[in-house]
Nucleic acid binder design. Structure first.
Lengths: 193, 193
DNA sequence: CAGAGATGGAACCGATCGGTACCAAACAGC
DNA sequence: GCTGTTTGGTACCGATCGGTTCCATCTCTG
């Protein structure tokens, strides 16, 4: 019942946009790689911009699900559970097709902060911060809100560094900073350690 | 004696590329905003790509000069002198036309790491790290090489965060992390504090 | 003032951009 | 088998892309 062509379009677009960039990939490429006809494309999406937004929405959901799964599967204790973010990033950085963060890339490519794609990308980062905030709050960190922003900042810095170096080295480097940060942070009546 | 048209082209291109993105700005825009004729453009630059590379080279030189000047003018002592990076970033983030880091943006837009523009952008970051390494070494930090990479990582994270938030708040937040990092770092026979 | 080099404007090129219209084949449910 | 929807293919649209060519003008130097 769910349209087959639509799924193929989204899958091809997500891959191509990430690998080569949103502006660098034309509709023609998406059609040929997905095997979908031109008319079918515009039956499912009013414009390329709408496809972009839909791709980002799905990737946002998938990415945060992946992060939650990674944290859930982490052997780390509650106190250092937020560091699981960097464990997960280390795996991502090692992937052959790693090309940074799709949402950072979108904010860069779609310069206008009011554009739908830019907004979805910015909101993604905000949701990740809120998730980290929850982890930090559960671990009893005071100032967990600020800490969450700093961990996200470290994660973004690691992603940019990995994009430049083309190695996974940035992940443990950022994690070391995060460890120093959490070590100096004040934990109140910590539920457990 | 230095070609006037060439300077105007570089100035207009630098501004437009930074404000709207490299791919988003066509040659026609650069011509109209610089007042340079089409033929003159291709007399000075074999292609748009060559203009892009030249713009990046100049911005690299200007940016690192700015950083060195900022550090030189900083009232901070030797031990915390590298933190002047974040003092400088704070000013940049507050600018109305702030749109992230031109070199990060280039690495994102020019996806191919072998492309000339991407390489120049990546090399810029490397040079900044080497400069920070010098500051840290002069301050007597052990492991100054790793520390330099971590400070640069924090800087990039701050830039991405500022791009998303559209406020200068990320600079002091990253600086706080850098302070915690330097505080836990081992200083050998420190020349002075 | 004369000559040479640099300049801006415009016409033009093939290719590609995002988007529309039409059509025949494949597919479903009844 | 018949009907109605979804599909892929193709031709086409105006606009813009990066790049070439030619020309008239302007400016600087001798």
């Amino acid at each position: 019942m769910p349209s087959n062509a639509r799924e193929r379009l989204l899958a091809a677009a997500e891959r191509l946009f990430y690998e080569e960039g949103i502006r660098a990939v034309g509709v023609e490429r998406i059609l040929s790689e997905s095997g979908v006809g031109r008319a079918s494309f515009y039956r499912h999406f009013p414009s390329k911009d709408d496809l972009v937004v839909e791709v980002l929405r799905r990737r946002d959901a998938a990415w945060r699900t992946w992060l939650a799964d990674t944290v859930r599967a982490s052997p780390r204790g509650t106190g250092e559970l937020p560091l699981a973010l960097f464990d997960g990033l280390a795996e991502r950085f090692a992937a052959d097709d790693f090309r940074g963060c799709a949402f950072i890339n979108t904010m860069v490519e779609e310069a206008d902060p009011a554009s739908p794609a830019h907004r979805v990308a910015a909101e993604h980062k905000q949701k990740v911060i809120e998730y980290l905030d929850g982890l930090l709050a559960a671990a009893g960190y005071r100032g967990h809100r600020d800490l969450a922003g700093q961990l996200a900042l470290l994660g973004d810095g690691a992603i940019i560094t990995a994009l430049r170096e083309r190695t996974p080295d940035a992940a443990p480097r950022a994690r070391a900073v995060a460890e120093a940060l959490l070590a100096t942070a004040d934990r109140g009546t910590a539920p457990q350690g």
